[in-house]
Amino acid sequence: MLLESVAYARPETVDQALEMLSSTDGAAPLAGGQSLINVLKHRVASIELLVDISRLEELRTVQDRPDGTLEIGACVTYDELEHSEPARAAHAVLADVAGHIEDQQIRNRGTVGGNCCLSDPTNNLPPILVALGATMNIQSAGGVREVPAEEFFEGYFTTAVGEGELLRSITVPPLPAGGGAGYSTVAVGADSKALVRAAAMVRADGQIEDARVVLACVAPAPFRHTGMEGALRGSEATAAAVREASLVIGEDLSPPGDVHASADYRREMARVVARRSVWQAIEQGGGRRG
């Protein structure tokens, strides 16, 4: 549809892509295009050159290492991640999140890297990647640098990926012994606006040993709620204790309010999704008390 006139290139290698991105003003990588094309359609961004990286094989694989670490190429689609056996074996919750992004047509095209690099605060994958302690591998002509997911998402539509750089892959460490992950969203309808999301990774054995609780949609970027994490650590792995811990979430949040939900509601729901995700993580890890 109605894009402004834009040049298009399809490099053969990541190096070529990087060369194009760094040598052309206004160049931007195009992967699945599920957000970028809409952005162009609405003319809220002006791009001179689309560098299509979606067919670069080196970015399109999901690999598991002997130590259980998962490496997901940036151009792996949601559908591929959902159905990837290594991903499902190592991180079923991550595969499920990918499998619930919008609808099948979008999952066939949208990519993991695109979901992360757009850094829309309501996007599905960033909170779970932060919760799982993933590492984002950013490539430039000079090599690859590693950035923890926690630091990667900087704010509304901004990430640690700089000029002349490209997200190459995401490394997700294995769940620790006794660890589990959880994810929860309150949204409009089945596949529309997310109002608030939470993702969690919890290590428990009757008692919560460690917890990472990430909230999204309520701030410019997903973030760990260290207050709730602290409240969880050392408490019993029971629903009541999780509920109690979630109560520390509240006035510290300044979520947006809009036609879909008020800031008050999003704040309240942050507690709700936080405890749901934590409880799911405890259940998945088999660490609940009793």
Binding site: D103, V188, G189, A190, D191, S192, K193, D258, V259, H260
Partner: peptide, 16 residues
């Protein structure tokens, strides 16, 4: 108008 596109106007689909 606060819902002038399908981003904001969630028309029901088979998923719902």
């Amino acid at each position: 108008l606060q819902q002038a596109s399908f981003y904001d106007y969630h028309a029901i689909t088979s998923l719902d």
